[in-house]
Amino acid sequence: MSHFNWTLDTGTNYHILRTACYPYMKYHCSKREVQDLSMEDKFFRFLKVINLGLPMLFYGLAAIRLISHKEMVRVSDVEEVPIYFLYAEDKGSRF
């Protein structure tokens, strides 16, 4: 899926827009109300198919050189997963 709702147990919903960009996963997350995103999901999937995924491949290969920040996210008591960013998040920002 490329564009979908992700609702937390607290009732907060996020719209997730994601795509592969080898060897990474690129995503955008916005806090929004639940909406039917099936048409947008199909549209983004169509775009990926018609351009053979080449733009995201090149973006991902360029990101190998551009990534400058890594954070470890704990997913269980014993396992952590690295999350890579082009730059560090401003933890004190309003949004």
Rank of each mutant, 00 (worst) to 15 (best):
D36I: 03
L8A: 14
R94C: 07
L8V: 02
D9A: 14
F58A: 06
L86K: 10
Y59E: 15
P82R: 01
L37Y: 09
L57W: 06
F46V: 04
M56Q: 13
N51P: 00
R18W: 09
Y84E: 00
L17S: 07
L17C: 04
K91I: 09
A62G: 06
Y22T: 14
R65N: 11
R32L: 14
H15T: 12
H28A: 13
K42H: 07
K48E: 15
Y87P: 00
M25R: 11
H69D: 14
F44H: 12
F58M: 10
V73I: 13
R18P: 00
L17W: 09
E79I: 07
K70V: 15
K42N: 09
V81G: 02
F4W: 07
K91C: 05
H69K: 06
V75G: 00
F95H: 11
A20F: 11
F46Y: 12
A20P: 05
V75R: 01
I16D: 00
V75I: 15
F44S: 06
F46W: 14
M1R: 09
F4L: 14
F85A: 08
T19I: 07
S30A: 11
I50T: 10
W6Y: 15
R32S: 07
E80W: 04
Y22N: 10
R45K: 14
E71P: 02
F44W: 15
L37F: 07
E89P: 10
K91A: 12
E33I: 10
E79R: 10
P82M: 02
T12H: 02
K48P: 00
R94F: 11
D77P: 02
V49F: 13
D90Y: 04
R18N: 09
K26F: 15
K31R: 15
M72F: 07
Y87Q: 12
L8I: 01
G60V: 02
I83C: 08
L17P: 00
V73K: 13
K42S: 13
H28D: 08
G60C: 02
K91D: 08
